[in-house]
Each structure stands twice: as C-alpha cells, then as structure tokens.
Simulated assay, not measured.
Amino acid sequence: MQQQSSAAQNAGLAVNYYHFAHFTSVASAQAEAQNFIKSVQSVTSSKNMVLVVDFEASELGRQSKATNDADLAAFDSTLNAAGYNKTDLYTMASWLGSRIDTNDSNKAGSRNGHLTQLGRNIRQLTPGNGLLITALMANHRTSMSVS
C-alpha cells in the first residue's frame, strides 16, 4: 500500500483513505476506527488527508437511526482524537433521515458527504480489510484497490 500511495502522490494526486463500516455498536465503531487508524498509520504519518467511512452495509440498515447516529459519532470522535479531523461519509441517499442523520449530533469532525445513487457514483470495493486508497482529481473519483 505504501508504494501505491507514494506513486499516487508523486503523480500529483491527493491520497485519502476509505473504510467500509460494519460496526453495530459504539464499542465496535471505536474498535473499527482504531483498526482504520492503524492501517493508515502503517502507510503514512501524515494526518492531512480525508478519512472516508462507507456506511451502507446491510447490517447497518437493520439498526435504528439513533444507534447508527451514535455509532457514527463514536467512529468520528475516535478518528478526531487521533488527530484525523477531515472525515467524510459515503452512504445511500435513501438512508438520510430514515437510517442516519447528518447533523451536529453525529458530526464530530469536518465530515462532508457523498450519496450513493445508482448510475451516479462509481466505486470499486475490495474484499479484505475494507481499506482503499482514494485518489481525487478534479471532479473525478478514482479508487486504487489494496490487497
């Protein structure tokens, strides 16, 4: 992953990191955030990047909105406590207001948002640790998979 990250940066791309969430409690959200932090720190000591949480796993759709909001807040707070203050949420448009809210109660950091809509956003998921390097260039999003 270090080689891919360096190659992207040398090509002038901004390198950010992605985590596919499975957490269903505050404790598991904090544990996933810690694992995400360790994975990112194994590649770079920089904290000047966006850490993205992809929040659309089927098990999350069975949780209450209040639980999901608390879990997202715990995930963000853990990232923020480690010095990662640029966070982003990637989720389905249909979940806003029904499965999650994006408001001050669950925005611990400077979270932005990307909504998944069929035919609108293209992404590549990799089995394994859920970590992708996301290179952002102009208005295009390109993901380089990490094995």
Rank of each mutant, 00 (worst) to 15 (best):
residue 3 Q to M: 06
residue 3 Q to C: 02
residue 5 S to Y: 12
residue 5 S to P: 06
residue 6 S to K: 15
residue 7 A to E: 15
residue 8 A to W: 04
residue 8 A to H: 11
residue 9 Q to P: 03
residue 15 V to T: 03
residue 20 F to S: 05
residue 21 A to E: 05
residue 21 A to K: 08
residue 24 T to D: 13
residue 25 S to E: 15
residue 27 A to R: 07
residue 28 S to K: 10
residue 28 S to D: 14
residue 31 A to M: 03
residue 31 A to G: 08
residue 34 Q to L: 11
residue 35 N to Y: 05
residue 36 F to L: 01
residue 38 K to N: 15
residue 40 V to F: 00
residue 42 S to W: 11
residue 44 T to P: 01
residue 48 N to T: 07
residue 48 N to V: 00
residue 51 L to E: 04
residue 51 L to C: 10
residue 52 V to M: 05
residue 52 V to A: 03
residue 53 V to A: 13
residue 53 V to C: 09
residue 54 D to P: 00
residue 54 D to G: 05
residue 54 D to Q: 07
residue 56 E to Y: 04
residue 56 E to C: 03
residue 57 A to C: 07
residue 58 S to D: 13
residue 58 S to M: 06
residue 58 S to Q: 12
residue 60 L to D: 09
residue 62 R to S: 15
residue 64 S to E: 03
residue 70 A to M: 01
residue 73 A to K: 12
residue 75 F to W: 08
residue 75 F to S: 00
residue 78 T to F: 00
residue 79 L to Q: 02
residue 81 A to L: 01
residue 83 G to S: 01
residue 84 Y to V: 04
residue 85 N to P: 11
residue 88 D to N: 12
residue 88 D to H: 13
residue 88 D to R: 11
residue 88 D to K: 10
residue 88 D to C: 10
residue 89 L to M: 08
residue 93 A to P: 12
residue 97 G to Q: 06
residue 98 S to Y: 04
residue 98 S to F: 06
residue 104 D to Y: 12
residue 104 D to R: 04
residue 105 S to N: 12
residue 107 K to Y: 14
residue 110 S to D: 15
residue 112 N to F: 14
residue 113 G to R: 13
residue 113 G to W: 15
residue 117 Q to E: 15
residue 118 L to Y: 14
residue 121 N to C: 09
residue 121 N to P: 08
residue 127 P to H: 04
residue 127 P to G: 02
residue 131 L to A: 00
residue 135 A to R: 07
residue 136 L to S: 03
residue 138 A to E: 12
residue 139 N to C: 09
residue 143 S to A: 05
residue 143 S to L: 01
residue 143 S to K: 09
residue 144 M to Q: 07
residue 145 S to R: 08
residue 146 V to W: 07
